[in-house]
């Protein structure tokens, strides 16, 4: 039996990927099983899904603790989740990243394969939906499932044009992966990360929480795009700030010297005809992105009346 764990973010299609793997394996004549970690996560939050493949009927119903393969759909998960937890000594980790295997931040002893699935998906599908691309990569890297079956399962799930572009993306990733050499496995076993995220704080009598404690969750990891502010043009209308669902834009009031400098700069801009007089009066107000929490929804950019905010692809 082979066990696969998929780490992704809500909305990236991790569960679909696990299911498609299971369907493809079934097409290959195997028994298979796919299931999510049943959670309440919304788009962007870390999620986990599992697939088992076997020649025999699968009776096991527990989660997967010692995977043969791990698929990481979003490179930011490497620092947020212990993605290699329990990985078999000769296991393979496939990470969606434009970086090289050495640079994604996983232990050197682990067989890591990277693939720029986001790049491929944007190029071929036109949207940063990477699950099908990664399935192609999985077939190429592991040989556990035939690319034909992967394609078949994708087409069955997404008929028509959408399915076709997804298949193309999967095929491209398959070719790229199949061409990469399997790294000779070093015997050093992956160092177990400390269960740092596990909290041993004593629980109260009932599930009563303290105010604002959600702030420990850094939802900035969720984003694919980030907003870039052009403060020179900014009219200080405050629309970006007031429309951010995540309170990820900070409104700061500059005082003293800082405020004077900001005013001076604004006056120059006004002379140059770049901003209006009204904006000069509010020059001491600054709007700054709080990258810790910005989920990259793009509302601020959409609402900025002067198009002073641009959404840029986050490097991962």
């Amino acid at each position: 039996m082979k066990e696969i764990r998929i780490h992704g973010r809500g909305g990236q299609g991790s569960v679909t990927a696990a299911e498609l793997l299971a369907v493809a394996a079934f097409e290959d004549g195997k028994y298979s099983q796919a299931f999510p970690f049943f959670g309440v996560e919304r788009r962007g939050a870390p999620v986990t899904a599992f697939t088992r493949l076997s020649d025999k009927k699968i009776r096991l119903r527990s989660q997967i603790y010692e995977p043969d393969y791990v698929i990481v759909q979003d490179a930011t998960l490497v620092s947020a989740v212990d993605v290699t937890a329990g990985l078999k000594p000769d296991g393979i980790v496939i990470v969606n990243s434009e970086k090289s295997a050495e640079d994604v931040g996983l232990n050197a002893g682990i067989d890591v394969r990277t693939i720029d699935a986001t790049g491929i998906a944007l190029e071929i599908i036109g949207r940063p939906i990477v699950n099908t691309t990664l399935l192609g990569a999985f077939a190429g890297a592991t040989g556990e499932i035939s690319i034909e079956s992967i394609k078949q399962s994708v087409l069955a799930r997404f008929p028509g044009k959408i399915g076709e572009v997804n298949v193309q993306a999967a095929e491209k990733a398959y070719q790229l992966m199949a061409a990469t050499e399997r790294k000779p496995h070093k015997k050093t076993r992956a160092r177990k990360k400390e269960a740092a995220r596990e909290s041993y704080e004593k629980i109260p009598t009932a599930a009563i929480g303290k105010p604002g404690t959600s702030e420990v969750t850094e939802t900035g990891d969720w984003r694919i795009f980030y907003p870039e502010f052009d403060m020179e043009q900014c009219t200080r209308c405050g629309k970006c700030f007031e429309n951010c669902p995540d309170a990820a834009i900070i409104e700061r009031t500059l005082r003293g010297k800082e405020a004077d400098e900001a005013r001076k700069r604004a006056e120059e801009l006004e002379k140059a005809g770049k901003i209006k007089k009204a904006a000069v009066k509010k020059a001491h107000i600054q709007y700054e992105l709080d990258p810790t929490y910005c989920k990259g929804c793009g509302i601020c950019a959409n609402e900025c009346p002067i198009q002073g905010i641009k959404m840029k692809l986050e490097e991962k």
Partner: peptide, 13 residues
């Protein structure tokens, strides 16, 4: 002392 009553607990809790 604004506490939150009736939070939900995941399988860890």
């Amino acid at each position: 002392d604004p506490k939150s009553f009736g939070m939900f607990a995941d399988p860890n809790y």
